[in-house]
Write a protein that binds this DNA or RNA. Sequence first.
DNA 1: CGAATACGGTACGTATACGCACGGTACTGA
DNA 2: TCAGTACCGTGCGTATACGTACCGTATTCG
Lengths: 154, 154
Amino acid sequence: MTTNSELPMALRAAYLTLHRRSEAQFEKHGVTADQFVLLATLARGDALTQRELARRMPSDPSTVRAMLVLLEKQGLVRRDAHPSDSRARTAALTVAGKRKYQQVFKAGESIRQQMAESLKTGEVEVLTRLLNQIAESLSSEFVTTTDARGTSVL
Amino acid sequence: MTTNSELPMALRAAYLTLHRRSEAQFEKHGVTADQFVLLATLARGDALTQRELARRMPSDPSTVRAMLVLLEKQGLVRRDAHPSDSRARTAALTVAGKRKYQQVFKAGESIRQQMAESLKTGEVEVLTRLLNQIAESLSSEFVTTTDARGTSVL
DNA sequence: CGAATACGGTACGTATACGCACGGTACTGA
DNA sequence: TCAGTACCGTGCGTATACGTACCGTATTCG
């Protein structure tokens, strides 16, 4: 009855709007908004396994694989055999990938700036903190209602 | 340079986590998280044109059409000719659709509650407000890249 | 050491998300 | 009235998002 059901909708609206905006902005660089997220994640920690990359984005390993295939075709990412685990493959930025990442990062500056300017001083930090809180809360495995599957990860 | 680039990532992570969670929760009811958003939008304003429905969700008219086709097959939604505009079609909940919406709304209560409980008193409202602000900011059409003095839109 | 189990990646299917082009209808102005 | 334009819905193509099933490798434990 309260604004409880408004929060999910506001979250959805904000994210989709950001996503649309980013797609439009990045289009001329030939990468999608989500591909940029992948590039950014690799820029922070290179030579990750596909699974670790997926965990950090966060995204599904299956989705990440599809994205890597496309990015590999574009020459922005390289996949190599894992040095010790022959099941795994590592993903890393190529030189072109690093360059592309920096370009697109700059191209996104106006969007980040526009977001920041629409808020008062300090509200960016507050918003980021609150978002991180609910994300963590929602990703915790156990719900207080009823316990169905005990095998919790962590 | 600052945490500017953290906000988009936090927004993305929070939304995707919410979305995954909702999908899992709603699965037993046979509707997806986004289908629930559509049902909820129709519950608030029935007999909307597809375009107006898309505008309110917010989503792409093309996407909404695809969703309506699926929901129509399930008997949750009805599409009729617009009374005055023969180009348009109106979408409305069927009786089963209204019932389904209420069921799924209840099923989502635990998620909304979990979000609310992870925040302090009043933070839900703050978060909702900030999200609405950046959504509105990002959906404004013209961006003032060079001059930061962009007088607010509308 | 060998069996059971866990884990990484791949393949496939469904649903979104969106842009774009096309056909048809409404509206507007000369 | 008629041409030009704006608008609604549809069809199509690409990229995500995710679950599930499957294969092969790693790890663990009796």
